[in-house]
Design a binder for these strands. Structure first.
Lengths: 236, 236
DNA sequence: GCGATGCTTCGGCCATCGCCGTAACGTACG
DNA sequence: CGTACGTTACGGCGATGGCCGAAGCATCGC
């Protein structure tokens, strides 16, 4: 079967440490320059360039020119999902390694981070739990939905999901929503279009902001108030 | 971040052609011997043995001894999901290759096959479409549910999903169900616990049977009658 | 026991590929 | 138009790792 060769090609591209680091850095959904990616991968710019060319040809990442810079980003959400699923398997394998040696950066990542286009970490799980507890959502490892009252609730906050509902072939009272199992909490949280909308809203209203150039995000004072007031979520 | 190294390790394991072939062969959920896997991968037994040892150590596959044979199978459903997601990305990249050169084996695979623990191919998609059309299920790329009437319908056929419903923390009228986007049809079909139950039922009642040692399955005459009578599905 | 089968380990060969040096190219900016 | 910066192309080095031949263990059948 020819598809096996393609499969191996994609997996091998993701399997090189330098390329994996670059893909990891792009997991926040932003676009980075070749030089930035070279730095995070710990290789020389010319080495990074070669990697980027190969991954671009394979459709893993996409290139967009802007002035004299060339910005690279993950080509499709499918690539982000692929990486999530590999990380899930890698996390299963993690135990043999030490767990306690988490630096401050890891601590920030566990607290709150973006997972391509949605929020993850303690924050992401807490928000999902709050929605489930309030009867606004149902969620397990296989699938999730936002209930009719959940759509109204999120709408009252200013997150409009009617567009997503209208896109469904048969107008139903709820919205299907993709769950995402992340490596730090080992529990599902909101992903897909709904998670993306919630994340975008959080950034737009200054509830969270990015920490330097990583995937980690910081919860602003305003965000603490909003997450507690709207969702009943309080994070130490 | 240490998790990047683990990520690369897992992806690299999946990225070797020989290992990818073995993993592919195990995607039907069965357990195969080291010799069988060596044959499908096209390498000598001793080479296969090394690959299998590495993948077992990494937690990708599991070993169960049985007499003088050693049977290998995918370690967890998470590994199968990882492979599905890689195949999805690989399929996006496929266009540059020729599409028409599908041999009889590929044709059988496209018609009906198992995808780890559930049915895929034309058959899998047709069954999912039939359930959606009958109001028994809702399904999109992000998530899926089996409706209350769907639970009753499947129950009337003999597929009991009450256990799955009872497992849910809050007893609801429906069951969340994982969708799976497969490479040949490019459309979602039923996976997860529900897809697994439907597949198991189909095998148990002789509706489908495996074709030699591949992932492809053949629909029996009895199966044609059942799929048409129960689901309204008719496949040429 | 003895041979046969299935699997694993060891040793050495070979190819692939990641890496960086140097150098050339193209595009913005002064 | 020249400089500077970012990116790409080429060549050679080095190491990782896949591959098989041969030999060593284990298990089953006679």
């Amino acid at each position: 079967m020819a598809s096996t060769a393609l499969f191996a090609e994609i997996a091998a591209l993701a399997g090189d440490p330098a390329r994996a680091g670059m893909l990891h850095a792009l997991m926040d959904g932003r676009a980075l320059t070749a030089t930035e990616l070279a730095r995070v991968a710990g290789v020389a710019p010319q080495t990074a360039s070669g990697h980027l060319a190969r991954m671009t040809a394979a459709g893993l990442i996409a290139l967009q020119r802007q002035g004299r810079h060339r910005y690279f980003r993950l080509a499709t959400p499918a690539v982000a999902r692929m990486m999530e699923s590999i990380m899930e398997v890698a996390a299963d394998h993690a135990p043999p390694r030490r767990r306690f040696a988490v630096g401050p950066r890891d601590a920030a990542l566990r607290k709150a981070r973006t997972c391509y286009d949605h929020l993850a970490g303690e924050l992401g799980v807490a928000l999902a739990d709050a929605l489930v507890a309030g009867g606004y959502a149902e969620l397990d490892a296989e699938a999730g939905i936002i209930t009719a009252t959940g759509i109204d609730f999120l709408g009252s906050i200013g997150i409009d999901l009617e567009a997503a509902r209208a896109r469904r072939p048969r107008a139903t009272a709820h919205i299907l929503c993709r769950p995402c199992l992340d490596w730090s909490e080992r529990r599902p949280h909101l992903a897909g279009n709904v998670g993306k909308a919630l994340c975008a809203h959080s950034f737009a209203h200054g509830w969270v902001r990015r920490i330097d150039g990583t995937r980690a995000v910081a919860i602003t004072p305003k965000g603490h108030r909003a997450f507690h007031g709207e969702f009943g979520v309080r994070l130490g």
